[in-house]
Design a protein around this nucleic acid. Structure first.
Lengths: 221, 221
DNA sequence: TGCTCCGTGTGACTTTGTCACTGAAGCAGC
DNA sequence: GCTGCTTCAGTGACAAAGTCACACGGAGCA
């Protein structure tokens, strides 16, 4: 990958003027982060704005009694909103970010970030659009957990997270942490799905047998 | 109230230069909204940025099956984030805003708003800080609904919403809609509180008898 | 081979949400 | 006053979801 052009990978940043692009590139520090690394967590403060060039980062919230829920994922071509929010408010993080795959990211120092927000309407629009879209994500999370049923949400996630062979490589605990529920609930509901012939469970993975049935179930009610 | 100085009531806007303050004031349309009026709702798009001079606006999310949850409230001296988000993304509203009291607000047209965001670092900081703080609110809502217990949340809300006489003037349905739960659940739990001698229920209102006990209960676990 | 850890299964119980229905409190209109 | 209507609250039965405790078995390793 040609590192000198990374802003072009971000919708909105490609329209920056060449001088501003150069400013972004020279100020940024390219970070390579291996899968599983915790990138930020509650109590820490961001050193700068993170632009995700490659990979995905999972942002999730934890409770004191061990439960966990995924708020959203940041993928290549996006910026990290939590970081933006913390930069703007000078607060520390409230959730945790973990590299789900190997990640390449550009870290732009706070000072440069603030300058660009000031000087460039395109940059500002990019940041604010990303910001606003993430708020929509949070609304959806709330809608799901308050009004949604767990069985439908599991079916939906299985379909989202399956690889090209229809296999989801996660433990039941992982799935529970995705949805903010408990492991036992996932085990029981997956067992129901198995009885329906929709899936074939294995240790640390689930094989989806009937995608259509799962999709129909997820869409019901 | 002296209307010519309303930006001074907003922390952050008082530091605007006099010319920009005048620009805000002349472009704004002062709106008086009576309690109970629906200000915006899903599907609509904002005509401009709303600055709340007096009163409170309740922003809540509704499900298709009749349940409801309050996301946050906007009070005097704050701006409406939903509106900001929609202005930035050119999306329509996803939640509903209702005037909880009589409201006086300044509506600044989108064009003026965008100009000010461009030209004034102070104005931009004000908007972004409000924005970011509201994200924090949403994180808290998620934390509560995913990890919290309903009885503790009710106790907490009763204390928040009580007037100076310790009376909360709401129906059980209203309280359920605050917390995103069902009316029957509220009825049952309030009955428990009554058995403990903490409250005295009445039609359309609850009288708090033992604030300390309620507070201790809300803080437990 | 035996040991330990981890992922999973399960039963019993609590909490929360849903449904259907009852009755009481307020509030017209007469 | 009385009559009917609406709104609010209470309740029982059940379903869904979360908690707790523990059992089982496979994977990996000494």
């Amino acid at each position: 990958m040609n590192m000198t052009s990374w802003p072009d990978r971000f919708i909105g940043l490609s329209r920056l003027s060449p001088p501003l692009k150069r400013k972004l590139e020279t100020a940024a520090r390219i970070r390579r982060i291996t899968a599983g690394t915790r990138i930020f967590g509650p109590g820490e403060t961001p050193a700068g704005m993170l632009f995700l060039i490659e990979g995905t980062v999972r942002v999730h919230q934890q409770s004191d009694n061990g439960r966990d829920i995924v708020l959203y994922r940041v993928t290549g071509g996006e910026s990290c909103v939590m970081t933006t929010a913390c930069l703007f408010t000078h607060h520390s993080y409230m959730a945790e970010g973990v590299a789900e795959t190997d990640v390449i990211a550009a870290e732009v120092p706070r000072r440069t970030f603030e300058d660009l927000v000031s000087d460039s309407p395109e940059f500002r629009d990019f940041v604010l659009a990303a910001y606003s879209h993430r708020i929509v994500d949070l609304f959806e999370v709330i809608d799901n957990v308050v009004f949604g049923r767990v069985d439908l949400r599991i079916a939906e996630r299985l379909l989202q997270l399956a690889d090209e062979n229809g296999v989801v490589s996660m433990t039941h605990q992982d799935m529970a942490d995705e949805l903010g529920t408990a492991r036992e609930v996932v085990s029981r509901l997956l067992n129901e799905f198995r009885k329906q012939g929709w899936i074939e469970p294995g240790r640390g993975q689930v094989k989806l047998l009937d995608l259509d049935a799962l999709a129909r179930f997820a869409a019901s009610r």
